[in-house]
Write a protein that binds this DNA or RNA. Structure first.
Length: 226
DNA sequence: GCGACAG
DNA sequence: ATCTTGTCGC
């Protein structure tokens, strides 16, 4: 499934409402042996964005394949419309990936979004692959403070509706916002994040792709140490 | 109108 | 998101 990206904000929101109705957030993940972690990186005023995907074996964190590239960035950052800025570059990166993977782990919200279609949901839907959303901060929803220990969690709510889980992945560090993206349910999403984290706040595959995508950007732009 | 607001 | 050293807290 594909669609155009050069839309007005109103058109983009209409498209989101249309796409959101196609999401599957009730099917448990059958497996997550091979995780395709995706991320982007860019400079404040640059017009190019670095996108990368790292396929990691969940049990060992061994890197199976990496793809990194630079891509033109045209859409601005508008809260709620993040995918229109970052997804085109990510989709290009995924198109160059050869390794079959079980699930995508995306930095950002899944259905924990005003229209229930954050970048993890949007990406999963367009690629027709299971996708988990794991964000560092909140976009929408309310919640209590989870307990202080790793594994402690509390529901992320929008009124009565559960749209995600605020999950502590490490003792006494800020919790993460986990929500299903597509072809995945909330329980599976939390399981995956918990199974791949512990040493750091972020899941290890997320840290790996974050480091790699920064390396890709710096190598393309040439950053000089002062 | 005011405050909130993934990356 | 990125630019950046030291520093406070467990």
């Amino acid at each position: 499934m594909r669609h155009r990206w050069d839309l007005t904000y109103a058109e983009a929101r209409d498209l989101q409402r249309e796409l959101a109705s196609k999401l599957d957030t009730t099917t448990p993940l059958s497996r997550f042996d091979l995780i395709a972690s995706a991320d982007v990186s860019f400079n404040r005023f640059d017009t190019e964005i670095a996108a990368a995907v790292v396929v990691v074996r969940a049990e060992t964190f061994e890197v199976v394949e990496r793809v990194g590239l630079m891509f033109p960035m045209t859409f601005p950052y508008i809260p709620g419309l993040l995918s229109f800025r970052e997804a085109p570059a990510l989709i290009e990166a995924f198109s160059r990936l050869k390794t079959p993977y079980d699930v995508i782990l995306m930095d950002g919200q899944g259905i924990a979004h005003p229209r229930r279609i954050g970048i993890a949901s949007h990406l999963g839907l367009l690629l027709d692959r299971p996708c988990v959303g794991c964000a560092k901060t909140r976009l929408t929803g309310t919640h209590d403070e989870p307990g202080p220990k790793r594994g402690d969690r509390v529901p992320l709510l929008d009124g009565e509706e559960v749209i995600g889980t605020v999950l502590r992945t490490k003792d006494r560090v800020k919790p993460l916002y986990v929500s299903p993206g597509h072809r995945c349910d909330l329980e599976s999403a939390v399981d995956l994040v918990l199974a791949t984290s512990g040493k750091y706040r972020l899941p290890t595959p997320s840290r790996m792709v974050h480091d790699y995508v920064n390396e890709v950007r710096r190598r393309a732009k040439g950053l000089r140490p002062p």
